[in-house]
Simulated scan of single mutants.
Amino acid sequence: MITMLMAGGLGVAVVMVSFGAGVVVALKQSRKLSAPLIYLAAAAEQVGSGQTRPQMEKSGIEEIDLVYEELVRTADRMAGRISAERQFSADASHQLRSPLAALSMRLEEIEYLSNDEDVREEAANCLEQVERLAGVVNDLLAVSRSENAGGNEAVPLGPVFEQQREEWQRSYETVGRELTFEDNAGVAVLSRPGSLSQIIATLIENSLRYGEGTTSVVASKSGRGVMIHVTDGGPGVAPENVDSIFTKGFSTGGSTGIGLPLAKNLAEADGGRLELSKASPPTFALALNAVPQSLNPSKILPAGSIISVGARRRRR
């Protein structure tokens, strides 16, 4: 009996020792695996924060090292694409500045010399759009030189909507359509003035070209931001084109296919987003950060930050 008890006790002791040894080995192995995984996560974070060459020593674990090597190759490809896009933006901006300046001077000459009131008004409206486009070109050039867009201001929507109404009202009346604006947000948004005007103008022009019925531009509060919806009564976007309308060069009506992709990039550069929220009837949604009503922008922001984006003063 005593022999059996001793054998049982010995067996229990062996099991306990084996269990303890297993725990020690498991902990050691887990530390060996967890450290490289932590470093790998840090390397992924470096790529996400914009560093094109993550720093990490090889762990000696084949699977983890393979993931790291692929992460490095991905970072290299991203760096190449970002560099190419910034170079294209800079080159395009430089190439556009001279023609825009020449066009602006020609429109001013027409505005001054023409005796036809309608011609003078149309020349003034065209000149406003050329000046806004020149501002967008300057913004693109600035973005291409810096990783951060910056330069956002507190922009009230009322004057922006009024400017767009003056620019597009006659074009809509000519084709027997109506253009309406409604600011239910009542707060300023954080954006670059030229970018905001260009985005809304692109959506209005897109609706004029492809849409039907009344085009409505409505701003409303959405959490801490503002949503601007642009919609009309047209048939909308075909299902097969929904995923392509923001692709550079894509067009179903013979246009350049640059307007919507540029508008989307401008929105993202200002910390917002532009998307097709509904295909039929077509509804584009522009989301921007808002300045809280509880803040007094004249005290919080530098002098001159609250701007009025109104129609250009007509010179006679």
Rank of each mutant, 00 (worst) to 15 (best):
V24E: 08
V25Y: 10
Q29W: 12
I38C: 01
L40F: 08
A43T: 04
L66S: 13
V72T: 10
D76H: 11
G80R: 13
A84Q: 11
L103E: 07
E111T: 03
E122W: 07
A123P: 03
V130I: 13
V137T: 11
D139R: 13
N148V: 15
E153G: 00
V160G: 03
V160W: 02
E162W: 03
Y172G: 03
E173L: 13
E173C: 01
T174I: 12
T174R: 14
V175K: 10
A185R: 05
Q198V: 00
T214I: 10
V218S: 05
V218R: 15
S222P: 00
G223F: 09
I228F: 04
H229E: 15
V230G: 02
G233Q: 15
G234Y: 02
A238S: 12
N241Q: 13
T247H: 12
T247M: 12
T247G: 04
G249A: 08
S251V: 05
G253N: 14
G257I: 08
N265A: 15
L266P: 03
L266M: 06
E268N: 08
L274W: 06
L274E: 07
E275A: 11
P281H: 05
T283H: 02
F284V: 05
A287N: 12
L288H: 04
A290H: 05
L295Q: 12
G304N: 05
G304Y: 06
